[in-house]
Structures are given as C-alpha cells and as structure tokens.
C-alpha cells in the first residue's frame, strides 16, 4: 500500500469545491482541526459523494463492466506506461476507483509503482486468463495488489513470464476475445471499479490483440518524432485488421490519440505534431504532454520503493499538470462514472 495524498489546493480542485478552505475542511470528519492536511484518494471520493448527496449503500450494485482505457502504441518508449500510470493515479485522486492491468512482460508499470517483479510473487493477467480458459480455479482478489487505500487504485502486476501467454493463446479458439470473456465472466469483480486501465506491450501479438478486443477505444500514446509516427502505420493496420475481421459481430475499435514529449525548441516535435493533427484531427486529445524532466525522475534505479508517478512525486510540476488535464479530459472521453453516477 502506498501512502499518498495531495495538499489542500489540489484536493479542492479534484473534489471540484469552490467554497472556502475552512468549509472544505468540514467535509472531512477527522481533519477539521488541523491546518495542514493530506487528502487521500479515498478522502476525495467520500467528499465528492457527500457533496453529491449520494448514499452509497442505497446505490444498486454495478453490474456492467466499467470503461476500459488501453494504452497502446506499436512502438516502445513512447510513454504508454508513464501515461497509463499517471492517469491512473490522477483518476484515482479524482475519486474514481481504478484497476490497472500491466499487460506488458517488461512490467514497467509494475516497476513504476515500486514493485520489483524479480523478487515478488506475481500472478499476472496471462496466468489468470489461462486458468480461466482451462476452467481451473483462480483468485482475482489474491492477484490484485492494492496501491491506494480503500480499493482506490489496484494493480494486476506483470512479470517476464507474461510472454508465455502467446504460446497457449495460439492453441485456443476465439483467442482474440479470451480477455473479453474473462472480464465478462468476472463482471462482479470488475464492476467494483469505475475504470480499468491497461498498459499494453508495443508488439503486435495475440496478447495485445486480445487486450484490444475488450475495449471500444484504445489510447494511442505518440511520441513526437518521425520514428513514432512511422509506427502509426502498424497501429492503423492492427486496428483495421481487427475491425475488418470482427465487424460482422458488431465489434468496432476506435482510437484516441495523445501526443507526448513536446518540446518548444525542438522543431521535429512541431513537425510531428502538425502531421499528427492534420492526419487525425477528430481523434486527438487536446492536451499535449510536455517533454519534462519530472517524467524522467519517476523511476528510481536503486531505491525501487521510492519510484512513483509524477503526480505522486512532483504534484505541482508542469508534467503533473499535463497529466491531470489529460485525465480530466479522459473522464469525458471515456464516460467514466463515479460508482455509476455520471458527474457533469
């Protein structure tokens, strides 16, 4: 469990509170008297529900899968993990219950949250799906690692053995939809969350395809250089191929694009962004993630437990601001709801 919270100013922003700070403090039972408070994701969720006047006990149990945001790009190093982990921690701090699934055998998302996959005992998504398809017993609750208190941010971690998934996926029928079926079969478990985030591997393989086939819109993270734009060709053909193959089932996968690594004095960044916006105007997120040093400081090489997202480590940086703005826009883009309540 990670002990993370934000200070008053951000907490007020995340709750969407416009009143005075002293009024704000009264929303939190234990924290009325102290001056400097740290507000956790759970605090913010409870405050938002309180302001909405919602009695959680009276709400019906959710029975539908929440929106899925799959960070995907056909090239490594474009910032999929940074964006995935960043918006996961931001959405959680907005009060949404977030489940992250590390779908990359490199396990960078697992590492971003300070978990050493080499020494930890990890049950990854591949193992869960394998047991599900063989009708063996598995425990989702044991596989899930709590990161923020109160089920606000959970992770299904990964390790290098996730690469084996392709070898058994090859042998089963309807393999593209095995992950979707796995989610549907465990809808009681997954519907506890307000959003599911997946960090996908860059390669085109059966696992990444299966992860894509469970969502309606992937989040393509594009680094602003020629190499990354070139990979759009691969991504487009991946997506078009799946849509072509499964259109008759009513399946259609859409793409939402976020530009990453913008630097105002690098002209290739501007060229790349111009090409991107000219090509995919209606698919682009308006937020551009800057090339910022804060992102580079997320992962500690020798003190892994100190690693964390930019929002955790430098909440007031320009990088964290971009992540917060992006996460806000994704709430709308993906229709993320607070325990089933659409907040406008």
């Amino acid at each position: 469990m990670r002990n993370f919270g934000v200070k008053l100013k951000l907490a007020k922003e995340f709750v969407g509170f416009v009143g005075s700070s002293s009024e704000f403090r009264t929303l939190f039972e234990k924290k009325g008297t102290q001056y400097h408070n740290i507000y956790s994701a759970l605090d913010i969720r409870n405050a938002r529900l309180k302001l909405l006047g919602v009695d959680l006990a009276a709400l019906p149990q959710q029975d539908k899968l929440p929106p899925i945001i799959n960070c995907r790009m056909a090239k490594g190093g474009t910032g999929k993990t940074t964006i995935c982990g960043g918006i996961a921690s931001a959405l959680s701090m907005f009060g949404y219950r977030v489940l992250m699934i590390d779908g990359d055998p490199q396990a960078s998302l697992t590492g971003l949250f300070g978990i050493n996959w080499a020494t930890e005992n990890i049950t990854h998504i591949g193992e869960l799906m394998l047991k599900f398809s063989r009708k063996e017993d598995y425990s989702l609750t044991e596989a899930v690692r709590p990161l923020y208190e109160g089920k606000m941010l959970d992770l299904i971690a990964a390790d290098i053995s996730l690469v084996n998934t392709d070898s058994w996926l090859m042998g089963i029928t309807n393999r593209e939809f095995v992950f979707k079926k796995f989610l549907d079969a465990n809808v009681d478990f997954f519907s506890q969350y307000d959003v599911i985030l997946i960090d996908s591997a860059p390669s085109t393989n059966l696992l990444t395809n299966a992860l894509m086939c469970a969502c309606q819109k992937i989040l393509a993270v594009v680094w602003l250089d020629g190499q990354s734009l070139k990979a759009m060709q691969i991504l487009a053909s991946n997506v078009n191929e799946l849509n072509d193959a499964f259109h008759a089932m009513g399946f259609h996968l859409d793409v939402h694009i976020v530009a990453n690594g913008y630097h105002p004095s690098y002209s290739p960044c501007k060229d790349a962004l111009s090409t991107l916006i000219s090509s995919y105007a209606d698919k682009m997120n308006n937020t551009v993630i800057p090339h910022a040093v804060s992102f580079m400081k997320q992962v500690e090489l020798f003190k892994e437990e100190n690693s964390g997202t930019v929002l955790e480590r430098e909440p007031n940086s320009i990088a964290a601001r971009a992540i917060i703005d992006l996460a806000k826009s994704l709430v709308k883009e993906y229709g993320i709801k607070l325990s089933g309540i659409q907040v406008i």
Binding site: L229, M232, Q233, A236, S237, V239, N240, N243, D244, D254, V255, K270, L273, S274, T275, L276, I277, S278, S279, Y280, A281, K283
Partner: peptide, 13 residues
C-alpha cells in the same frame, strides 16, 4: 503547428 498539411499518415477506418 499546422493542421492542414497535405501529406497524412495511414488512416484508421
């Protein structure tokens, strides 16, 4: 940046 370049990337259908 410009948003009306002629050369564009492969499209998503």
């Amino acid at each position: 940046i410009q948003n009306n370049l002629n050369s564009t990337l492969p499209q998503f259908k």
